[in-house]
Design a protein around this nucleic acid. Structure first.
Length: 594
RNA sequence: GGGGUCGUAGUUCAGUUGGUUAGAACGCUGGCCUGUCACGCCAGAGGUCGCGAGUUCGAGUCUCGUCGACCCCGCCA
């Protein structure tokens, strides 16, 4: 660096350094060239400091500064001085001072960036991903990266202080049935065989418990080859943990302590523990989803019993076919226009609803509704009481199979909240969801599949139903939901081989297959496996919510596009025939792109 | 696999019913400017309207296809 040593950063320089000679190094954010006097906003990771080039201070630097352009990398030696009266800039932290340059070194030039690194304006994500190194220079991106770092640091120190061991598990592992599609890695030394990248270190961490290590954690990459979403990337990071000799309450206490600390340390925000707890059943009944945003009301209400006997045929038929009729009272939203209601109906039918019945409650309690005539006065009274309906309210109804009603009304609830700004910004609503069903019937596969994963322990009191009525067995699983987004999930595991075998049976996983795919786990359980359980957190999602971002891409340094491509490196890419041959792979050239 | 939004200058966008030479702001280049901080003023350069067909006398605009980004459903134990 031409013999200069950096003495300060562009954030921490204050009036305490007045008249001192300092050396700053960073990037040229903006140049304001007045001809006789030149100002540079110098940016580094920490912040911005104004540098002044004046001929009377140092003529040569002033001359040289004319050639500075955006994103040139420079070193500046100069004197810290107070800005003239009235020239302070309260918008930046170093706004009281400036550095009068006595020596300017251009460490590197830069092509004009494809987009402005100033904070204003949205830039297409294409460009941001292609020039990720430029995007990451922008302060709000740096903030996300730093927040993520601090979250990880806090997690580590919290768990370290509670006797956890950080242990790495393999990335090259074996493909197991159930769950997401695996990313596969061909083996060179075992022709025709493949490793799989882990969807989670689930089996390894259980084996660590059998190993007697008692408390494990790891901040670890996981891989799932499924379609992407704003909160889903093919590779993502989990805080993964597992503990022996604990039950649900121990984990919940530990995690609540962790989150309180995280929010306090990184955001300076106090959150209240214990968090709200809902059983899966309650969550579905009241919010229509197993990941409810509990920061506002608009809860769902079952009126199947009233609907069963009312004059509206579709309601009757749905109930007699074992479906349900549920309603939302949208308090005070009776001013929705005809167009609003058409939009909302379109929203509902887009989710698979056949329609969306509604009732406006007018002054005096009369009903304005296309379906009003099908209800007797008695039924109207019953509905009004059940839903606590008052003039100015509008009621929305869903009638269908239970799962469909929950999906439609659950989403409608969110939509209503968005339209009326009921979702409090900056507030964090944590909810535990417990007592999940252990398994559910999969029509396509014609068998029961795990809701969580096959190693989740059934609730003791439901154990005997495992063979008789598997759909009604509840599990010892728990999810943590934050603002309607699942940020963590875990369970108490099965630690007895006999129970594990019974669960495999209920899942129609044959003894042969279980032995082949999970034999090592079954065998391990027979060597003194302690009771254990754990949880995993989606680090990306947690940091996204803490940072107030809408996508996890904004808190990942190098995310992939919707098509799982990296626009920076252009991965995935073709490989040579020689590489393929070495792996005993034969490409179908018809499907090879380009 | 399905539904939707978008694609025009380096960037963000406008572009009327299909009609002359496709515009603006910012950025960029050159010039002027000693207190700016989104500096200002003057001048200038910059376009495969994503790509390919089609309709038409004529397509940025209409039709079909295709590519890409994003959002959602399916999928994600």
């Amino acid at each position: 660096m031409d013999g200069l040593k950096r003495t300060h950063d562009c954030y921490s320089l204050t009036e305490t350094s007045l008249n001192q000679e300092v050396v700053l190094m960073g990037w040229v954010l903006r140049r304001r060239d007045h001809g006789g006097l030149i100002f540079i906003d110098l940016r580094d990771r920490k912040g911005i400091t104004q540098v002044v080039f004046a001929p009377e201070v140092h003529d040569e630097s002033h001359q040289k500064a004319h050639s500075l352009r955006s994103e040139y990398v420079i070193a500046v030696k100069g004197i810290v001085r107070r800005r003239p009266e009235g020239m302070e800039n309260p918008k930046i932290k170093t706004g009281m001072i400036e550095v009068a340059c006595r020596d300017l070194r251009i460490l590197n030039t830069s092509k004009t960036p494809a987009f402005s690194l100033d904070e204003e304006g949205e830039i297409s994500e294409n460009l941001r991903l292609k020039y990720r190194y430029l995007d990451l220079r922008r302060p709000h991106m740096v903030e996300g990266i730093i927040l993520r770092h601090r979250v990880c640091q806090t997690m580590r120190s919290y768990l370290n202080s509670r006797d956890f061991l950080e242990i790495e598990t393999p990335v090259l592992t074996r493909s197991t049935p159930e769950g997401a599609r695996d990313y596969l890695v061909p083996s060179r030394v075992s022709p025709g065989c493949f490793y799989a990248l882990p969807q989670s270190p689930q089996l390894y961490k259980q084996i660590l418990m059998v190993s007697g290590l008692e408390r494990y954690y790891q901040i670890v990459k996981c891989f799932r080859d499924e379609d992407l979403r704003a909160d889903r990337q093919p590779e993502f990071t989990q805080l993964d943990m597992e503990m022996s000799f604990i039950d649900e309450d121990d984990i919940i206490d530990l995690i609540e302590g962790l989150l309180c600390l995280l929010f306090k340390e990184t955001l300076g925000k106090a959150i209240r523990a214990p968090f709200q707890k809902l059983t899966f059943q309650e969550a579905m009944d009241r919010f229509g989803t197993d990941r409810p945003d509990t920061r506002f009301g608009l809860e769902l209400c079952d009126i199947s019993d009233i609907a069963a006997v009312c004059g509206l045929k579709v309601f009757q038929e749905v109930v007699s076919a074992n479906g349900v009729v549920k309603a939302i009272n949208a308090k005070g939203m009776g001013d929705f226009s005809r167009k609003d209601l058409d939009d909302l109906t379109g929203f509902a039918t887009g989710l698979g609803a056949k329609g969306l019945a509604w009732i406006k409650i007018k002054e005096g309690g009369s009903w304005q509704s296309p379906v009003a005539k099908f209800f007797s006065e008695e039924e109207k009274t019953a509905i009004r009481q059940r839903l606590d309906a008052a003039p100015g309210d509008i009621l929305f109804f869903g009638a269908d199979r239970k799962s469909a009603v929950c999906r439609v009304l659950g989403e409608l609830r969110m939509e209503l909240a968005r339209r009326r700004n009921l979702v409090p910004k900056g507030e964090f609503g944590f909810t535990w969801i417990t007592e999940f069903p252990l398994m559910e019937y999969d029509e396509d596969e014609a068998r029961f599949v795990s809701l969580h994963h096959p190693f989740t322990a059934p609730m003791n009191e439901d154990l005997e139903m495992l063979s008789s009525e598997p759909a009604n067995v509840r599990s010892r699983a728990y999810d943590l939901v934050l603002n309607g987004i699942e940020i963590g999930g875990g369970s108490i595991r099965i630690h007895q081989a006999s129970v594990q075998e019974a669960v495999f049976r209920a899942l129609s996983i044959s003894e042969n297959e279980a032995g082949d795919k999970f034999g090592f786990l079954l065998e391990a359980l027979e060597y003194g496996a302690p009771p254990h359980g754990g949880i995993a957190f989606g680090l990306d999602r947690l940091v996204m919510l803490m940072a107030g971002k809408d996508t996890i891409r904004d808190v990942m340094a190098f995310p992939k596009t919707h098509k799982a491509q990296c626009l920076l490196t252009n991965a995935p890419a073709n490989v040579s025939m020689a590489q393929l041959a070495e792996l005993y792979l034969k490409p179908d050239w018809k499907k090879v792109p380009k």
